[in-house]
């Protein structure tokens, strides 16, 4: 017996068997085995995602290296990125967006949590409170902004100015003041968005084991200590998620500055997304190259920030 014979007679190993089976499969057996059905069933989804999500992303990447009016295009290399960096409005937009995010974090982030914890303590008519909290989310955003715009009327007869006037306060210029415009936007945005987060927190609170509260109560813990030592640690996973979602959301704020102020007064509410919009649409013919270049930079920044965030908080959320 030669060495070759010995090799041939050796029983096939598991990996070899798999390889053998793969080799014997042809397109027909693949189709008969359900492969084709899987592809056909996935096709509508793939088409929808492809056409409405991935194609625009790819198109945006391409456009960021072009000068285009959507009909005629030419390649310009990194010019669009250089022009974005050279634009004096970019630092203004970044500063304003960061300011909006900070204000939303300080005032907007704790509000739903506090509301949810308080509502979870309510014994009766919890549904009514949930509905009331969620009501602003049901109001179409444009309608909500137009409503608040009338509240912020800068004249003495404006709704907020009238109410504050009863206490001898104001009148304030609200959206027409460079210093008050951004906090005014945050106030409305918090009102509009808090309801959704409250519902998420309320759902998460139901999953906190009641034994923990019972044990804390036996130990004589006050309400505050129960919240601090039981509720918050149990919610930390969801809190981390809502925090990063809020940061990403506020970095992309557009609706409020666009509808309330158009970025004014004097660029005090010009955010990054509004700057992107202005690049694309303010001038006749549109500078879509600069708009997509800045969009890409923002997307990359948010992706990197999210990665770093999850790395840094991994141990905390897992423990």
């Amino acid at each position: 017996m030669t060495t070759d014979d010995a090799v041939l007679r050796k029983p096939p190993r598991r990996a070899d068997a798999v390889q053998q089976r793969t080799r014997t499969r042809n397109p027909l057996t693949w189709a008969r085995g359900g492969g084709l059905s899987a592809v056909v069933f996935a096709l509508p989804l793939l088409v929808i995602f492809g056409v409405f999500s991935w194609a625009p992303i790819v198109r945006a990447v391409v456009m960021s290296f072009q000068e285009t009016n959507l009909i005629v295009s030419s390649w310009v290399g990194w010019d669009n990125f250089q022009q974005v960096f050279a634009d004096p409005m970019l630092p203004v937009a970044i500063r304003n967006t960061a300011y909006f995010a900070l204000l939303a974090l300080i005032f907007g982030y704790p509000v739903p949590l506090v509301a949810a914890v308080l509502m979870s303590e309510v014994r009766r008519a919890k549904g009514i409170f949930s509905a009331l909290a969620y009501l602003p989310v049901v109001v179409p955003p444009v309608v909500a902004v137009l409503l608040w715009k009338t509240f912020y009327d800068p004249s003495d007869t404006g709704v907020f100015n009238t109410v504050l006037g009863w206490f001898g306060i104001g009148p304030f210029a609200w959206l027409n003041s460079s210093t008050l415009a951004m906090p005014s936007l945050v106030l409305e945005a918090t009102w509009a968005a808090a309801g959704g987060t409250v519902i998420i927190y309320l759902a998460a609170l139901t999953s906190v084991p009641s034994e923990l509260y019972d044990a804390a109560e036996v130990d004589g813990a006050s309400v505050w200590r129960k919240v601090w030592h039981v509720t918050l640690p149990q919610l930390r996973g969801i809190l981390l998620i809502t925090l990063i979602l809020q940061i990403i959301g506020t970095a992309q704020v557009f609706l409020e500055p666009y509808l309330f102020t158009g970025g004014g007064p004097d660029n005090a509410t010009l955010t990054i997304l509004l700057l992107i919009y202005n690049y694309a649409f303010q001038s006749l013919g549109g500078n879509y190259g600069m708009a997509t270049a800045l969009s890409l930079m923002l997307a990359v920044f948010l992706a990197v920030m999210s990665l770093v965030y999850f790395r840094l908080t991994r141990s905390w959320s897992a423990s």
Binding site: L70, I71, F281, Q282, S283, L284, G286
Partner: peptide, 8 residues
């Protein structure tokens, strides 16, 4: 002017 190019 904001939507002209896209409309076209």
């Amino acid at each position: 002017p904001t939507t002209f190019a896209a409309d076209l």
